[in-house]
């Protein structure tokens, strides 16, 4: 257990130290989310009708969850690259904890996700977003997003362990993330969806997490506190399923 913690910290540090040296990643974590905020707020926003007085209040929780999902690609691609270049072989030949490479990677993702979230919140505050609840509730929303982002990192860690190329990581990830993001309440109210899509959106964890955050930040119409408990359950469920199978794949990983 002590080895797991110390090895995880070493790997997390490795993933953070290399970040500023890859400018393309920095763009992915800063410029890209801002672009999405501006796109939805000023291009689509005017045509989207919500029960919120201000579309920015509706949008920001949704776009943070979308950003967590899209940011996950970096995790999958990074692990796929480690595998392809033989780094995972090196790690597996070392007397280190078997879970540390993935645990360190997902721990580092908490830092990047939080950083992206701050960029989005500041952008949001500039374009008219505001927290309309208590400080404690606002903080609870931030923590919920961090926890959900952490759980979702493990999904992408698993993806990185099973794909055979960066291209397949991209297409497989996209197939998973695209419907989760867009067939949800992240950008638009789901009432106008056809029945089938509305049914999917209702159980979609993205909808539930977005609605939970809308409750915690805005006490938004039509979203109750139950979303918070369901969001926590989804977060725990994703973690319980994906962390063990990702580590299991890591133990069998081989250079392809």
């Amino acid at each position: 257990m002590r080895r797991l913690v110390s090895d995880t910290l070493v790997i997390a540090e490795r993933n953070l130290v290399r970040l500023p040296r890859s400018p393309d990643l920095l763009v992915a974590f800063t410029i890209q989310p801002i672009m999405f905020v501006l796109l939805f707020r000023y291009v689509f926003g005017g045509a989207i009708h919500t029960t919120y007085g201000n579309y920015a209040d509706f949008l920001i929780p949704g776009i943070i969850v979308q950003n967590i999902a899209f940011g996950g690609f970096v995790t999958a691609l990074g692990l796929e690259e480690d595998l392809r270049k033989g780094l995972i072989d090196r790690f597996r030949s070392l007397p280190m904890s078997r879970a540390a490479v993935l645990a360190g990677r997902t721990l580092a993702d908490i830092v990047t996700n939080t950083f992206s979230m701050l960029v989005l919140l500041v952008t949001g505050l500039i374009i008219g977003f505001a927290f309309n609840t208590t400080v404690l509730e606002a903080i609870a929303g931030v923590l919920l997003l961090i926890a959900f982002g952490y759980a979702f990192s493990w999904v992408f860690a698993f993806l990185g362990m099973i794909v055979s190329s960066p291209e397949s990581a991209n297409s497989l990830g996209f197939i998973a993330v695209f419907p989760l993001t867009f067939i949800s309440s992240a950008f638009v109210p789901t009432q106008t969806f056809p029945a089938v899509l509305r049914g999917f959106a209702k159980v979609n964890p993205f909808t539930i997490v977005v609605n939970a955050v809308r409750y915690l930040w805005e006490h938004g119409q039509g979203v109750g506190v139950s979303n918070v408990w369901f969001a926590l359950a989804w977060t725990a469920g994703i973690l319980i399923v994906f962390a063990p199978i990702a580590v299991w794949r890591y133990r069998r990983a081989a250079v392809r």
């Binding site: 490795r14 130290v17 290399r18 040296r21 890859s22 270049k85 033989g86 780094l87 072989d89 090196r90 250079v255």
Partner: peptide, 10 residues
């Protein structure tokens, strides 16, 4: 190994 398994960004 044959891959020179070092982290290129470190």
């Amino acid at each position: 190994g044959q891959y020179a398994a070092v982290d290129e960004n470190l």
